[in-house]
Amino acid sequence: MCPLIPNLNSHTRLLVVQHPSERNHALNTARLLALGLQQAELLVAESLAEHPQWLAALQDPHWRTELLFPGPDVPLVSAQPEDSRPRRLVLLDGTWRKARKLMHVNPALQALPRVSLPASLRSRYRLRKVPHPGALSTIEAGVEALRILEPGLPVDQLLAPFDALIDAQINAMGADLYARNYRTH
């Protein structure tokens, strides 16, 4: 799979805060995102208080830092060229429950302006049952945000190892088991 991981260079920086329980997950899409994008960093932590350098970075007024996380009345991510500061998007990696916990225990994340993705997006993650429309894996969310912010960036390259990983998992489980548990009719 390593040859499939691109080496993309974006203007937008991504910080993925990963819940510690996700670190060794077999389908760790946050790690794939961080490996394929030069301007992405993966921080495995439940509490940002243990990482004062990141707390300071999130509050740096020279950066336009936003949390990519859905919610009622959260505006869609957009380019907004009138704000010329460099942009940093923070993504939370974990189950929805763990992602909400990351927000709850980190006032610095709660204080960030939030942006979201269109709810009409569909996940390619065929091995998970989606809890609600628009629910995406971390790599898919990062790709879709970059697709909006940097239309010329070949972000689909980031999904090649993700797709290969899913295909390998489906092949390993067998077509019958996959059809019984994941296919929708």
Score class of each variant (00 low, 15 high):
A111Y: 08
F69H: 05
H104E: 04
P118M: 11
L32D: 04
A79F: 01
A45Y: 05
H11D: 12
L89Y: 05
P70K: 02
E82R: 04
L67G: 00
H11T: 07
Q38K: 15
T138F: 08
L127Q: 02
K101S: 11
M103Q: 06
I5F: 00
E46T: 14
V130T: 04
A175R: 03
G36N: 10
P86L: 03
L153C: 12
A135E: 01
S21T: 14
R88F: 05
N171W: 08
V143S: 10
T138I: 00
P52S: 03
A172V: 07
L165A: 08
E41D: 15
N106R: 04
L112P: 10
A34D: 11
G174Q: 13
G134P: 00
P72C: 01
P20N: 13
H11V: 05
A99M: 10
F162H: 08
V17R: 13
L112N: 01
L117K: 08
V115M: 08
D83G: 01
A168V: 05
H25E: 14
R88I: 09
R122M: 06
P52Q: 04
P72R: 01
D60T: 04
N181Q: 09
L127D: 03
E50P: 02
Q80I: 02
A141V: 06
M103E: 09
N24F: 13
L165W: 00
Q169T: 11
A34Y: 13
P75S: 03
A175G: 08
C2A: 06
S123N: 06
L102D: 09
V90F: 02
A172E: 09
A168W: 02
M1I: 12
N9G: 05
R88S: 13
L67S: 01
Q38I: 10
A40L: 11
E82C: 09
L67I: 07
P154K: 12
S123W: 04
R64M: 07
L37H: 15
R124K: 10
I166P: 05
L55N: 09
E46G: 15
R85K: 06
I148P: 02
A26S: 14
I148A: 07
M1A: 14
G36Q: 03
L102G: 03
H104Q: 10
L15D: 06
P52W: 02
N7L: 11
A99L: 10
Q39N: 15
